[in-house]
Design a protein around this nucleic acid. Structure first.
Length: 649
RNA sequence: GCCACCGUAGCUCAGCUGGUAGAGCAACUGAUUUGUAAUCAGUAAGUCGGGGGUUCGAGUCCCUUCGGUGGCUCCA
């Protein structure tokens, strides 16, 4: 028999008989590797462990705790789910079942829905099938055979998928015991490799995500290669639940919703209003320093403006219906840009004035579909950290980069450590349809944007086909302290709308030119940003953002007078302070302040009153001992001024 | 918008197969005057999301409507 040479990632080589399988190779190296490996990479392609190798090649093994291996594990778990469902619900038809980040799902067409009880039964069945350790084998099928096979099983969705595969596509299926599923693979070699998994929830999902299609029942689950990882992930989900901004927002009296006000229309309570004011203060400082000027625009506008801007054509479904005012249609504004364009147009502009940066925390209203509303993260009234920068082509790169850098400054202030800038580009197919038909301008602008990012040393990923219709954009993804993902700021280039508005400036040669426009909102909207901050900080805001910064806690009513003096001094230092002069025991007052997430607690009793001091207790730090009130005030003022993320600097 | 689930006191929740509501915390009152995460006692509090129906009788069953949640899709 022929010998072949396999090269391992460490460049070492071994010789095997031709036809050896990756699983056998793994076994030859060690039983542990063989049992942990879920997939192999051979000549750059991920491959099943049972496929014979017939020539010299490089080979890499992936265990379930590598990204590659984990994805396979999740995908195979989806198959296991489908097998279990088919056994328990023979009439169910399977649709698709991919791996997604940390989870998998499978869509089924069944009569009715899956109940909690069904999920438990299905999970039980999955365990049984995993324990049986059925071999998972790959089957190659001709197009006709595949269609015949799945038609015989009445798997109409699979037949539909096969019929839409390109003619030359190799069709494969995977079999585990009696269950055969159309799939490209690869998969784990046997069901026993799927050890640690859990079904999470079920919900409706349209076939192919199209609401005109039938609603299928989707089951979500997760799987990991070790018990610990599964436990950690479930713990993360629980932790995320605890930090849910809807829960904390209520507990900390930040915002509320009211049936009689309307869905998606938040009411900001005093604590929330304080956070808003601090954020606006920050934005105003940063924007003033960066040369922005502030403007203000009305909430209500005639329809003609949105005809001109294209909103009625492209965006009407997301706008509140018009109201009739003396026979004229008026709309509440869904975006601020048309108004800012009008402000640009209100005066003669010279190249000497450029760039013009118009900023406004503008309030917008969008008629989001009811099913999309979600706490503060998706609302119908919102206030945006909006600005539009009008500039010349020459100024554009600098302006765009400055906005990106502003994002980075904000990340530092808020302690956002993980983020991703997504440069969203056009694609040729979309020109004239999804995107304004200016092929050269697209290519040119995208090149400038890319260059600006490269020059500025900004890390980004490119995503083709995700641009706005008027130009390329950067969407900013951030991850909260516990790793939950959010879409926040945006930075968009617009080379189309200024033209529609006839915006011009006079260049050095006395000729009217159309400016470029950058739409940007680094701090997103108050709603989404504060929603994010609540979850990011888990309710424990840094001092500068905390609605109540200091609680003064007298040990007994005997020292209430001194406590009031302390409170007043803090107030005059512009520190937000609350005095708890109820007749409670000090332990109860402390507990109260702790559960309200108050950062600084000042315990005052006879000793403190005598020495003009306070006993400082800080959240997460405990008792810090006595300190003079004057020193403490200076320290807190400094911490607030620095917008420090850590206490006690 | 669509599918599913949920909606009981300010909050968190209990209330079995229908027999006109209950706990803890919070609030309020009184007593206690307290030294780093809960002092004790008492009081008040709900047209069980709204409307309609079935029934002798509905928090419980049915319909409808409003709101929320998980998804589909979209996005700040």
């Amino acid at each position: 028999m022929n010998q072949i040479t396999l090269t391992f990632p460490d460049k070492s080589t071994r010789s095997y008989s031709a036809g050896v399988t990756p699983l056998e190779v793994a076994q030859s190296i060690g039983p542990r590797l063989a049992s942990d490996t879920v997939v192999a990479r051979i000549n750059g392609t991920l491959t099943d462990l049972a496929i014979p190798i017939n020539q010299d090649t490089e080979i890499t093994f992936y265990t379930g705790d590598t990204p590659e291996g984990h994805e396979i594990l999740l995908h195979s778990a989806a198959h296991l789910l489908a097998q279990a469902v088919k056994q328990l619900f023979p009439k169910a038809k399977v649709a698709i079942g991919p791996a997604i980040e940390n989870r998998f799902y499978y869509d089924f067409d069944i009569d009715g829905t899956f109940s909690e009880k069904d999920l438990r039964r299905i999970e039980e069945k999955m365990r049984e099938l995993a324990k049986a350790d059925h071999e998972v084998s790959r089957i190659e099928l001709s197009r006709e055979a595949a269609i015949a096979e799945f038609r015989a099983q009445d798997e109409t969705y699979k037949v539909e998928i096969i019929e839409e595969l390109p003619e030359d596509e190799k069709i494969t299926a995977y079999r585990q015991a009696e269950f055969i599923d159309l799939c490209r693979g690869p998969h784990v070699s046997s069901t026993g490799k799927i050890k640690y998994f859990k079904l999470l929830e079920s919900s409706g999902a349209y076939w192919r995500g199209d609401e005109r299609n039938k609603m299928l029942q989707r089951i979500y689950g997760t799987a990991f290669s070790s018990k610990k990882q599964l436990k950690d992930y479930l713990h993360f989900l629980e932790e995320a639940k605890k930090r849910d901004h809807r829960k904390l927002g209520k507990e900390l009296s930040i915002f509320t919703f009211d049936d009689e006000v309307g869905p998606g229309l938040p009411l900001w309570l005093p604590n929330g209003a304080i956070i808003i004011e601090e954020l606006e203060q920050l934005a105003k400082e940063k924007e003033r320093a960066a040369g922005y000027v502030r403007v203000r625009t009305p909430h209500l506008t005639k329809g003609v403006l949105y005809e001109k801007s294209g909103h009625l054509e492209h965006y009407q479904d997301d706008m509140y219906p018009a109201m009739d005012v003396d026979g004229t249609k008026y709309y509440v504004k869904p975006m601020n840009c048309p108004h800012h364009h009008k402000i640009f147009a209100a005066e003669q502009r010279s190249y000497r004035d450029m760039p013009i940066r118009l900023a406004e925390y503008g309030t917008c209203y969008r008629y989001e579909k009811s099913g999309q509303l979600f706490g503060l993260m998706r609302v119908r009234s919102m206030q945006m950290n909006d600005a539009h920068i009008y500039c010349t082509m020459e100024q554009f790169a600098d302006e765009f980069l400055a906005v990106c850098q502003l994002h980075l400054e904000y990340f530092e202030i808020f302690g956002i450590e993980k983020y991703e800038m997504r440069l969203s580009l056009h694609n040729k197919e979309g020109l004239g349809e999804k995107y304004v038909n200016e092929p050269e301008l697209w290519v040119k602008t995208e090149a400038i944007v890319r260059q600006a990012l490269d020059d500025g040393g900004i890390n980004y990923v490119e995503i083709p086909g995700e641009a706005a219709f008027y130009g390329p954009k950067i969407d900013v993804q951030v991850w909260s302290a516990i790793g939950k993902e959010f879409t926040l700021g945006t930075n968009q280039v617009d080379f189309a709308i200024p033209q529609r508005f006839g915006l011009t400036y006079t260049n050095q040669d006395g000729v009217a030119e159309t400016p470029l426009c950058i739409h940007r909102a680094p701090l997103s909207t108050h709603e989404r940003f504060i929603g994010f901050l609540i979850e990011h900080y888990g309710g424990d805001f840094p001092l500068w953002l905390a609605p109540i910064q200091v609680a003064v806690l007298p040990v007994s009513e005997k020292v209430n007078t001194y406590a009031r003096q302390v409170k007043n001094q803090l107030l005059s230092a512009n520190i937000r302070v609350q005095l708890n002069d109820r007749p409670d025991k000090i332990g109860a007052k402390i507990r109260n302040a702790e559960t309200s997430r108050i950062n600084v607690m000042l315990i005052v009793g006879a000793r403190e009153a005598e020495n003009e001091t306070v006993s400082v207790r800080r959240r997460f730090q405990g008792d810090l001992g006595q300190q003079s009130l004057a020193d403490l005030i200076n320290q807190l003022k400094n911490e607030i001024k620095q917008r420090s993320l850590t206490s006690g600097i």
